[in-house]
Design a protein around this nucleic acid. Structure first.
Length: 211
DNA sequence: AATGGGCTCAACCGCGGTCGG
DNA sequence: TCCGACCGCGGTTGAGCCCAT
């Protein structure tokens, strides 16, 4: 990644851009664990991160924050996203608040790369509405024969449990933590496939706290 | 095995809103 | 009231991965 590596002379003064490293993640997690979040610009400086406050905030909210659910948007969530998008439009942060553990960025990406694309394809084929039916196949229909996401929506609203975390293996050293964190950040994505084997950031969190 | 196009998603950018001095 | 700093949001980009050929 071209922007990731800066010359050593630049490293001391300039702000970093591009993907976050494991070290930066740990610094940010550690700092917020000790001092709390907020006032991102001063947080970035105080933590010793060569990042903008904006970048720290984004990384925290979209990736490191405990409770983040990653991957595998469920059919229920998909219906809820479509329902809320029809009401609110591109108010991603507002929509995200209705989906516990999901971020606005994730929902926005999901909408643009999947739902929006498929809707366009459906429209091109003059089959508007079939997407809804196919997505919601198995879900209940209303009297008009259309999809009634309301029951699904209400069920979603009750789904507030944090993601399940397996603690079958806990690290015993900082080296373990770093190796596991590295695995977490470098494992290839599986294109929507089950990623249950991935390390969640809550794992990283608990490790940091234990540490 | 090589490769080129499509897809995904983390991260950046720009803008508008809010707040304190 | 004005101004600057900061925050939050939505749009966009581009690196990396996947897959068909």
């Amino acid at each position: 990644m071209g922007t990731e590596r800066l010359s050593s002379s630049q490293d001391d003064n300039e702000l970093r851009k591009g993907p976050w490293t494991m070290e930066e993640d740990l610094i940010l997690i550690n700092y917020i664990a000790n001092h709390g979040e907020g006032v991102w610009n001063s947080l970035a400086k105080a933590a010793g991160l060569k990042r903008t406050g904006k970048s720290c905030r984004l990384r925290w909210l979209n990736y490191l924050r405990p409770g983040i659910r990653r991957g595998n948007i469920t059919p229920e969530e998909q219906v809820l996203i479509m329902d809320l998008h029809s009401k609110w439009g591109n108010r991603w942060s507002k929509i995200a608040r209705q989906l516990p553990g999901r971020t606005d960025n994730e929902i926005k990406n999901y909408w643009r790369t999947r739902i929006h694309k498929h809707m366009k394809q459906q429209q091109e084929g003059d089959k508007v509405g079939e997407l809804m039916m196919s997505i919601a196949s198995g879900l209940e229909t209303n009297d008009d024969g259309g999809i009634s996401p309301c029951s699904q929506v209400s069920s979603i609203h009750n789904v507030t449990e944090p993601m399940e975390i397996s603690h079958d293996y806990l690290p015993s050293s900082q080296g373990d933590i770093e190796a596991m964190a590295y695995e977490h950040t470098t494992l290839p994505r599986e294109n929507g496939a089950n990623n249950d084997n991935y390390w969640s950031m809550e794992d990283l969190w608990s490790m940091q706290l234990l540490n």
